[in-house]
């Protein structure tokens, strides 16, 4: 798809530099995804491929449907009975949108990091162990090992190793967000869905999270929702610009931010900068 965009781009803007895109292996494909809430058409014919081990940024103004798209991907739209979802979402060739079988297993393939950290009302240790236990692992040593590994992976181990049994609420908001990330990683997801994960954080905590994302993409695929242009520029390997429930443009960030093709994208870039 990126190659097609590149070709169209070449024909249209012959003088602009061309960035040739390689065909990337995709981990998730979305086809004709539509979400309705009563008379409101929230997502309109979304067709999207998410490349593996890359950071895909869903960019767009507030209310454009980014979060709904994210929630459709891990079937959290099931919680909202007023939403009517249609289309297909494929992970490893399985259409996860149209199945009600093994929904917990499907969700475990995608770690969720929400706008505001939601630590479970238990200890720091139990927060990370929660998902591991749900996977059926009961061996205490194995759970301990996983908890430590994941806390180290998000750079939280040294800060909490002496108070693992303290309430997760006692952590700072930045630490809570990293704990939520560790908790998500503990179930060994393929994809990490991050919904404006730094919007509630101070600049230092935001930087830590962003650096973590850069490291994590070696092993995971990340889909990051943001409306912050600079964050998208810093992190994205692939940008999907949305507006009014539609995908307006998508491609590599250097290409998309330097040579926007639509007036909506241009306007957003001007406002964002």
């Amino acid at each position: 798809m990126n190659a097609v965009i590149s070709e169209t781009f070449t024909k249209t803007f012959a003088r602009t530099p061309i960035i040739k895109l390689k065909r990337q292996e995709s981990i998730l494909q979305i086809k004709d995804l539509n979400v309705h809430a009563k008379n409101h058409h929230i997502l309109k014919n979304i067709n999207l491929e998410i490349p593996k081990n890359k950071i895909t940024v869903l960019l767009g103004p507030s209310g454009c449907g980014k979060t709904t798209l994210l929630k459709s991907i891990n079937k959290l739209t099931d919680l909202y009975k007023e939403l009517k979802v249609s289309g297909n979402i494929y992970i490893e060739k399985d259409d996860i949108l149209n199945t009600q079988r093994n929904v917990p297993l499907i969700r475990q393939k995608m770690g969720l990091l929400s706008q505001k950290p939601y630590p479970l009302p238990v200890s720091i240790y139990k927060n990370v162990a929660y998902g591991i236990k749900l996977k059926g692992i009961k061996n205490k040593k194995l759970i301990d090992f996983n908890v430590e590994t994941k806390l180290r992976e998000v750079g939280l181990w040294n800060e909490v190793k002496d108070r693992l049994n303290s309430s997760a609420d006692s952590l700072s908001i930045g630490q809570q967000q990293r704990l939520c990330l560790a908790r998500g990683l503990a179930v060994k997801p393929h994809i990490i869905l991050a919904d404006e994960p730094t919007s509630a954080l101070d600049p230092v905590s935001s930087k830590i999270i962003e650096n973590l994302f850069r490291k994590l993409k070696e092993h995971y695929t990340l889909i990051l929702v943001t409306h912050v242009l600079r964050q998208a520029q810093r992190l994205a390997d692939n940008v999907v610009f949305m507006n009014y429930g539609e995908i307006i443009e998508q491609g590599r960030p250097d290409e998309l931010f330097s040579y926007p093709q639509t007036s909506q994208m241009k306007e957003y870039l001007v406002e964002g900068n």
């Binding site: 917990p104 995608m110 939601y118 996977k135 998500g184």
Partner: peptide
């Protein structure tokens, strides 16, 4: 908060869990 329930579900818990 609904976010708390969503967090639990996204970790692979069932609704009852």
């Amino acid at each position: 908060p609904i976010g708390l329930k969503e967090a639990s579900l996204s970790l692979g818990a069932t609704s009852w869990e």
